[in-house]
Design a protein around this nucleic acid. Structure first.
Lengths: 119, 119
DNA sequence: ACCCAATACCTTCGCGTCCGATATATTGAG
DNA sequence: CTCAATATATCGGACGCGAAGGTATTGGGT
């Protein structure tokens, strides 16, 4: 499992990091986390939840029935916690690398040779 | 194209942000960017380059022949620049959200209720 | 009493991306 | 003369994601 997590999976783990949640609530939490940019579809969510459970990153926490509707709560496992931390570090480095290059680029928008001194 | 970029694609754009590069050099640059964690395969690279060219994010810069070997240089287009910037911002928010939750989690490893004050 | 929206679960299917393997061509080292 | 490195390209499989649809219950509108 060193396959980098894709965005939906990453945000599902992030949502669960705070406290155990049930599927439908995760959809809302991910939407909030991403400022509404990403609205998970059921197919994405439950597929991911199954995969993450098989991989041992999340665990079934408990089940509740509220108003006749089942709520299945999932929780982040220790492995999931470590994976999320590692993924976050990976992303942080990528963001830093991209930011540095974009900044350098903004400094010389159209002039590769700045009436050069060096090389 | 509001599909989030996957990591290989993101790093290819990042590599090209500094200056135009040819394919084989991009592989090395991406490896350096990721501290050797990601080594692009030719299948990934040229597939991505074709897709990115079709999408208008990168452009063919020039072609050189060095020692009988063709070098095809690609450059980041203005659209690619903007896309990379937007993607970087998106990732930055995700990193911040995950970091905040992981930090809160570390503070209370096994105690969901800290003898609470606020509801 | 009726229907529709919202809550909450789950499944199936197609697409796009990625990766591994493979192929080709040239130069330089052993 | 062969092998490694440089440099391009293609193909098939795997897998995650998204769209759509299906089941069930409660509550609001008419």
């Amino acid at each position: 499992m060193d396959t980098p997590l894709r965005e939906p999976t990453f945000l599902i783990l992030t949502a669960l990091a705070r406290e155990p949640m049930h599927g439908y609530a995760i959809i809302g939490e991910v939407a909030a986390l991403s400022d509404g940019r990403l609205s998970l579809r059921p197919g994405t969510l439950y597929g991911a939840l199954d995969r993450l459970t098989d991989a041992g990153l999340v665990e079934l926490d408990r089940e509740e029935t509220v108003d006749g509707r089942l709520r299945r709560y999932y929780r982040l496992s220790p492995t999931g916690d470590a994976t999320l931390a590692a993924e976050t570090e990976r992303l942080r480095r990528n963001v830093e690398a991209a930011t540095a290059r974009l900044r350098a680029r903004a400094a010389r928008p159209l002039a590769p040779r700045t009436a050069g001194g060096l090389a």
